[in-house]
Amino acid sequence: MPMNVIEIENLRSRYNGIDVLEDITFNVSGGDYIGLVGPNGSGKTTLIKNILGIVRPAGGQIRLFGHKQSAFQEWFRVGYLPQRLSSLNPGFPSTVEEIVALGLIAKRRMPGYSSKAHHDAIDRALDLLNISDIRKKKIGELSGGQQQRVLIARAIINEPELIILDEPATALDPETREQFYAMLKHLNRQRNVTIILVTHDIGSIGQHANKLLLVDRRVVFYGSFDDFCSSTHMTDLFGTHSQHVICHRHEF
């Protein structure tokens, strides 16, 4: 049985004195590919920020790879792609290579870390995302799709076992989006990387993820697509059409 990568129990999160998340309990197993969906303001981003330690929970327990999150040190096992690509400073004077290398910071004080290993890791991440040819370009000179690839390369440079992505496909054109989803599927199926993908793209999530986590301040539904397709939760929030689209396109 695969080990739990994430265990969350009775998580509560507050913002400006208001409960944004309440009584969140679920586990994520190694190798899961989870689509995290919910209406606007439902707390999806807050949930992943709690998991990543960006926001401090108001209550409850989070465990990562069996360790209490507050004491977790092995952040190189987790890759994160934030939501706000549009807020990137276009004048930031860093090259693609420099930005991708920033991902290595989580491993900086690990034994065996060397300059050679550093450069090899950068090369591997750039190759995987097919952006080696733009490594010397400044981040502000790239298209939205290329910038997104750079940030993904930064997120996967440590070959993490868990990748959390917050609406990663919004800046991508349809072709790049398909390539991006194919890359995630490859990481999940070939390398057994656990993926949590926050998305509004409910039409295509069924093609990629094997589980669905539906939140609306609480966990409304968490389980396989088969279970989901026979439930009424999604229709309550998004209408009958969305359920049909997701269940129809689900491949697993």
Partner: peptide
């Protein structure tokens, strides 16, 4: 240097890297 550069580029991701 690396911590400062990381925070300067993207504070949220820096925090998620354990900085």
């Amino acid at each position: 240097y690396h911590e400062i550069l990381s925070i300067t580029f993207d504070e949220e991701s820096a925090k998620a890297s354990g900085i």
